[in-house]
Amino acid sequence: MLTDKFLSRLDTLALAMRGKAQGGAGGSRRSRQTGSSAEFSDYREYIPGDDIRRLDWNAYARFDKLFLKLFMEEQESQVTLLLDASASMEAKWASARSAAEAVGYLALTGGDRLCLHCLKDGRAARFPQLSGRAAFPRLTGWLDTCVPDGKTDTLTETVKRTEGLKKGLCFLITDGYTEDALKETLDYLRYMRQETAVIHVLSAGELRPELDGALRLTDSESGEHIDLMADRSALDAYQDALKAFLKDVRENCSSREASYLLLDGGESFEDCFIPLLSRSGMI
């Protein structure tokens, strides 16, 4: 659960979206459509029947012609949260849940529609859409019901089963353990006109494993095990593999215009998340 102090900090922030909102309903995001908001957008010539209150008299005085001021239409966007609830997320579930909660708060307070999908067992469990600040408690309640105990056969296939994906922001909160380093998943989301932001959550044990001796490592998700002599060489090899994996994920995100941030499950979430959001351009 996020603290009030942290939530009050989030109030000053808003999720960044590169594209124009097309939510249809009134929101706080710019839309391509011109509307009646206070934000000036453009001029056009007066047509009989237009609202004379919009006439720009200064322009008339200058050009001796009647021009009508146009204002930006502020509409709501859809923010989709794809939360990986597979068993491998259990070790960093606190961080992942907190991230989902924080992003959901930003979305709700920013006037966006929030769609939460819980990905596990090959299904994308969809929660009812939420909007408005008042829906935040419901978000936290639903997040409480998510238990990371599922299996994710392939993340891409699970994401593809996500229903109700509309153009908007999509936050993928996952540990990213796919052979292609989220490449296909990102391609799909891009195809689905999502501005994707990847919140890559890894636990301290995954980022900085402290293992020693003869170990039989058992995968919490698949049950696969590996017998390992965790010596210095093995740990160094793991770090090399981790660096290569993270590099691949970053590169895949970068090449698909997806924002990326790496959330270290071993660090204090409230201390590091906002700076990470800022650096990654998600806010």
Binding site: D175, E206, A214, L215, L217, T218, D219, E224, D240, L242
Partner: peptide
């Protein structure tokens, strides 16, 4: 003697990769 200490990890994904690379280099 070959009794390994059981340890559950979130995923052996990276360990599998590291062992593969490790074995390839050694």
């Amino acid at each position: 003697r070959r009794r390994f200490l059981q340890q559950q990890v979130p995923s052996v994904f990276l360990w599998r990769r590291s062992i593969r690379d490790y074995a390839a280099n050694r």
